[in-house]
Amino acid sequence: MSQHDVFSELVGQDEPVETLRRAAQAAARVVAGEQVAAGAMTHAWIFTGPPGSGRSEAARAFAAALECERGGTGCGECHGCHTVLGGTHADVRFVVPEGLSISVKDMRALVLRAATAPSGGRWQVVVIEDADRLTEAAGNALLKAIEEPPPRTVFLLCTPSTHPEDISVTIRSRCRLVPLRQAPAGAVAAALTGRFGVPAETAAWAASATQGDIARARLLAGDPDARARREAVMAVPKRLTGVGACFDVAASLVDAAKAEAAAAFVESDGAERAALEQALGAGGTGKGAAGAMRGAAGQIKELEKRQKSRATRAQRDALDRALVDLAGFYRDVLVTAMRAPVAVVHGDAAVQSEAAARKWTPESALRRLESVLACRDAIEKNVKPEIAVEAMMLSLWKG
């Protein structure tokens, strides 16, 4: 098999990749009209694993292998593989929630489209990223499609392993599970060096600091702004010198997440609005142009609503990345205090974590770690980020 096939981007996932390869090749035999063993291929899959494990990448690679024109090998070279990986294949749809949830309206439209015969003669594939964001009604619409699937339709759902219960047990029971793991830091570092030319020392540091998340490790290795944001987070523990400082640090952490999210969408939001206004006749001078724009106010308002929801999601994701870094620091303090035979996550902050380990009891370090994890959980449950982060900072200061 080519070293550059569709599965080559999945780092440290040998067992899941082998499972997906076998299933894709069985699917190709089904298309060819051959008999395959029961269970060799199924119509609904759930990809689960911790952040950075490559859930979406695995689902996308499997979708490409299903559309591969070379016997389902996922060669990475044929038209089917290229168009799926590029997001332009006519029979593969990617559902990427821009906001906090996936609506029943969107899901019904998707299910209806997925019921049609594949134009390419292989499979209709629906990839739902963050399937844990399905509303209850959207989940019910999806369940009906999974219970009565069209013969050539495959559903690929991605969800964090930390909250698998966010997908209904009925849907889970009808899907084949593909558990992904956190990639070893060594494998991530080797991938950064081999594929992207990152110097070995930088690659090793980035892989460790991001706890095996290859996408974030690549960003950290090459983006000075990302490194600056991480450094600000790593400075949080020593800045907590009193109640006032706790509130100041909390505000700066939340503001930084908002700024990061805003920077990510400032250009696309403006372009989306300009394109919509142009489509609706903005700038027109003909008869009825002004009236047409007044009638389009509802569509513009709907766009603004989507953009606001997307920004909220991006802010929460940015804040969560900061909290993961902070949790890593307190984890390092705990393992150092306990003399655990495991490597620290933030090697470049080892002097800090060692000093804290001498100063705090292991129980105190554990309480601090738990307060960071509790903050992440609270934000996921829609507690206002400012409130959750302020409460966390006070807990971190008190110990």
Rank of each mutant, 00 (worst) to 15 (best):
R239C: 14
P341C: 13
G52K: 12
S309P: 02
C246W: 03
D255L: 13
A388H: 13
G99V: 10
T159L: 12
D14R: 14
L276E: 12
L396H: 06
P237H: 07
V188Y: 08
Q278P: 04
A215F: 10
E147P: 00
S208L: 15
G71H: 03
A365S: 13
T312P: 02
G72W: 05
V36W: 09
S168M: 02
G242Q: 07
S395Y: 04
L10I: 08
V30L: 15
G39D: 10
H79D: 09
G72I: 03
L319S: 00
Q182C: 05
H346D: 08
A264L: 15
A282E: 12
I167Y: 01
I167T: 01
E231S: 14
Q182I: 09
K398H: 15
A271E: 14
A290D: 13
R133P: 01
C75P: 04
R229W: 06
M293E: 10
A340P: 01
S53P: 02
A200G: 06
E98H: 02
V169F: 01
R60A: 09
H43S: 07
I379D: 03
L240S: 05
T116H: 10
G197L: 09
G270V: 15
K398S: 15
V198T: 03
A355C: 04
H82P: 00
Q124N: 11
V154M: 11
S53W: 09
A274W: 01
T48K: 01
V383H: 00
L157G: 03
A63F: 01
L192G: 05
A187F: 00
E201W: 10
Q124F: 11
P362G: 12
E380F: 05
E9A: 15
R181A: 09
A256R: 01
P237Y: 15
A207T: 02
A279D: 07
E302G: 07
T336S: 02
A340Q: 11
R229L: 11
S252C: 13
